[in-house]
Nucleic acid binder design. Structure first.
Lengths: 288, 288
DNA sequence: CACCCTCGATAAGCAACGCTGATACGGTGC
DNA sequence: GCACCGTATCAGCGTTGCTTATCGAGGGTG
């Protein structure tokens, strides 16, 4: 189970083609064919059907493992390399769109920061693999409960603030005048599914303990403005932290009153932050 | 970052010796030396000090990554192999000591089951790497909150029951006659630290949100009887699910009333259980 | 229906890798 | 000072893993 073979396998599976994968990886088609053959022999099961190229049941299984595995591998390499490298100048901060509130903006130093807005699930990976020095992730949680993050690597997390959540409705929506909404009343509403930018519907289902929350329109991207525009146009409801939800033209932001959920944002980093990173950490963690 | 090199590295770090590691792995000392050199060159940083052999800062870091990585690798291999292998006859069940309640015992089929009692944190790993077909893990949680399990692999979990937790006290203890105890009152008591058999003190600290719960005696093992005997002899308090705590000679089991915590047990397995495993799953999950 | 073109499997050749065995080097204990 | 233990290094050799070349099976086209 050489990581190289694994990498080849996921590439082949993604592109559904040996030759394409070979081109992308800089190998010959022959080498890719041998890689897959080696993997299949090693594991004792066919992983791909040929013509068309598609994963078998066992192959699907392997794909689920391969992603996190390769990610962890990168994380380990980056983590160790970071210990040896010269102390970096310039600070890179990875944030999920809804995690970038006014407090965060205020805490940034005047210069020398690179800000990366990534989809929520990519933030821990970016921090782990060295793409960013600090990360800010957010999500729905019961008050004072920590978030559930994918453990791509041993990361340190600190709570960096909690905020009420609001449902963003078009101003003309029948519920827009309410002063509070219950999640249970919105199970059958049309929702926007925006795993990158908004709060994932899966969180809602978990919080409500059941099915429902059928997506009306799926938005792939990390631009909060695009998302709020969609919501204003009536394409579906979105759940947002209050700071992001209030003041959007053409919409009303109604607080969610039940269940008691908060928008929690957490600061994540590897090891102990040094230099400029440490200063930002301190500033973000001091209680207002 | 060949897994072989990684495996060699962790072995060397564990045994603090190149030669010993070579013996254990079936290599020559020369090969081990070359492995480590290759890793260090690849990562661009020294990982071990020689004479004495001990991990450097970067090496410590790598060690934190290496364990989960190798575990995941094993899990992936086992998972795929399982899909190809003949349907196993005989069912292996891995359980944490305190997860083995009367309901579980009742749900087992009359014959053909192998039961493995493992330390709590080893159960998911055993299921993932194919050492067991099903696992039962337990822990402290707020009512209806899922447990936080290490994600060694994509595992499916189901809640399999919740139960009140009790503090196990020697019968002569001043608090033994109480009808309920608050966790806050016990922060400074003497506790048994039994990460394998009892509920880990770290869970208590997390639930209480602070330090305290200093361990008086540490018990490494998975025998619940040994643990209760220690508690009866006054070596420290233990938190146990009610079923395990009541009826221990020489002790009193006092329910924990605050914070509202339950002992939750969850069933974990990979993919979809087949044959005998499916039957046991059904039986464990049907609401009593 | 014959043709070609694409895509994956297979064979041969060659360079690089990774292991072993032998040896050099640097500590430690007697 | 010498023997001993443990790691680093070197030469040699078998194996691995890549490339180039070729084959065979489908699918589309004139």
């Amino acid at each position: 189970m050489d990581p190289h073979l694994l990498r080849t396998y996921v590439t082949v599976a993604r592109l559904a083609s040996f030759s394409e994968a070979a081109r992308e990886l800089g190998y010959t088609q022959s080498a890719v064919s041998q890689h897959i053959a080696a993997l299949e022999q090693d594991l004792g099961a066919p992983l791909l059907t040929r013509r068309p190229v598609a994963p078998t049941a066992a192959g699907e299984r392997l794909l689920e493992h391969a992603g996190p595995l390769l990610l962890r591998l990168d994380a380990a390499r980056a983590d160790v390399a970071r210990m040896a490298a010269a102390p970096e100048h310039g600070l890179t901060l990875a944030v999920a769109p809804t995690a970038l509130g006014p407090r965060v903006v205020a805490a940034l130093p005047a210069a020398g920061v690179t800000l990366k807005v990534l989809a929520r699930e990519e933030v821990p990976a970016a921090v782990a693999t060295g793409g960013a020095d600090l990360g800010l992730v957010d999500g729905l949680a019961a008050p004072s409960d920590p978030l559930r993050l994918p453990d791509v690597a041993p990361l340190t997390t600190h709570g960096a603030g909690e905020e009420p959540v609001c449902v963003l409705l078009p101003a003309s929506h029948p519920l827009a005048r309410r002063t509070g909404l219950r999640l249970g009343d919105l199970v059958d509403a049309r929702w926007l599914d925006a795993p990158g930018a908004g709060l994932p519907l899966a969180h809602l289902r978990a919080a409500h303990g059941g099915a429902g929350f059928r997506p009306a329109l799926r938005y792939e991207g990390t631009d909060l403005c695009a998302l709020t525009a969609l919501a204003a146009a009536g394409h579906g409801l979105v759940l947002l932290p209050r700071a992001a939800a209030v003041g959007v033209p053409g919409t009303a932001a109604v607080p969610l009153v039940a269940p008691r959920l908060v928008h929690r944002t957490e600061l994540v980093h590897t090891g102990s932050p040094r230099g400029a990173a440490a200063a930002v950490v301190d500033k973000l963690l001091e209680r207002p």
